[in-house]
Structure formats: structure tokens, C-alpha cells
């Protein structure tokens, strides 16, 4: 709890600061705050507003205000019936994807095995004349058919 003299000093400091800021401090400051007046005046001189670059202000405004909204924001701005249709399409797509994985699970695995095997048998030969990389596709395909998975 501040004493009454402390509160009085704080009020005086406040008044002196306002006077300095307004350029209206003509009287000698009271003794209680006299030693702090120099500090207040120095702060008043040093702490002045700083302007941003106009280009910065304009480009930031453009970025924020005219920037493209994100997916969520755009979805929120859509009419209700379009939002519902989009949600239904998304659910149907997911359903199809999982059903396909469930009932046709063997096909992707066979394809993956073939993809993993193919690079091992790539034979890259460099033509002597034109310095081109050449893949012997026919040979790779024959080797793929001959080798059991």
C-alpha cells in the first residue's frame, strides 16, 4: 500500500510528464520530482514515433486484405447446398477408396512387387556416338515375364 506522500509524488510526476509532453512546463518543478525531470525530458526527446516505410504499409495491406483465403475460409464462405454436396462427394470418394482396398487387395500388392523388381534389371547403356542414355525396354519386359514373382 503506497503512502499518501508516495501517491502525491506519483501524481506530481504524472502532471510534470504531461506538461513536458505538451510543451507547457514553464514553472520550476516541485522539489519532490525535481531530480527526475531531466530523465523525463530525455525520454521525451528520445522516445519519438517512428514511421514505417509507405511501401511496407501498402504491401502488407495488400497481403492481408486482398490475399487469397485459405481452403477452410473458402469452404466457410460457400453456400450451404454446395458445402453439403462437397462433403457428400468427399465421403463417397473415401468410401469407394476403402471398398476397393477391401475387395481388391491383391492387385495393388502384385503391382508393387513388380515396381520394386523392375529397377534392378534396368540396363543402361551409353551409346558411343551421341552420348545418350538408352533403356533396353524390350529386354526388361522379357526378363520381367520370365522371372516369377
Amino acid at each position: 500500500m503506497a503512502s499518501s506522500s508516495e501517491i502525491q509524488t506519483q501524481d506530481l510526476l504524472d502532471a510534470v510528464t504531461s506538461g513536458i509532453q505538451a510543451g507547457e512546463l514553464t514553472e520550476t518543478p516541485p522539489a519532490e520530482v525535481h531530480e527526475l525531470v531531466g530523465t523525463i525530458q530525455a525520454l521525451h526527446v528520445v522516445l519519438t514515433p517512428v514511421e514505417p516505410r509507405p511501401e511496407f504499409v501498402e504491401s502488407l495491406r495488400t497481403d492481408i486484405i486482398q490475399g487469397r483465403p485459405g481452403v477452410i475460409e473458402r469452404a466457410q464462405q460457400m453456400p450451404v447446398r454446395i458445402s453439403v454436396a462437397a462433403a457428400l462427394a468427399l465421403v463417397a470418394g473415401c468410401l469407394l477408396f476403402f471398398l476397393r482396398r477391401l475387395f481388391d487387395s491383391d492387385a495393388p500388392q502384385a503391382a508393387r512387387r513388380q515396381r520394386e523388381w523392375l529397377p534392378r534389371s534396368l540396363k543402361i547403356s551409353r551409346a558411343l556416338g551421341n552420348r545418350e542414355w538408352r533403356f533396353d525396354k524390350k529386354e526388361i519386359q522379357e526378363e520381367a515375364v520370365a522371372t516369377p514373382l
Binding site: A2, E6, I7, Q10, D11, L13, D14, T17
Partner: peptide
């Protein structure tokens, strides 16, 4: 009041 007090201590 707290701001006035803090200002005094800061100075």
C-alpha cells in the same frame, strides 16, 4: 494507480 506507481519506480 499501479501504472502511476510503476512509472515512478521506472524513472
Amino acid at each position: 494507480g499501479a501504472i502511476k506507481s510503476l512509472y515512478h519506480r521506472t524513472l
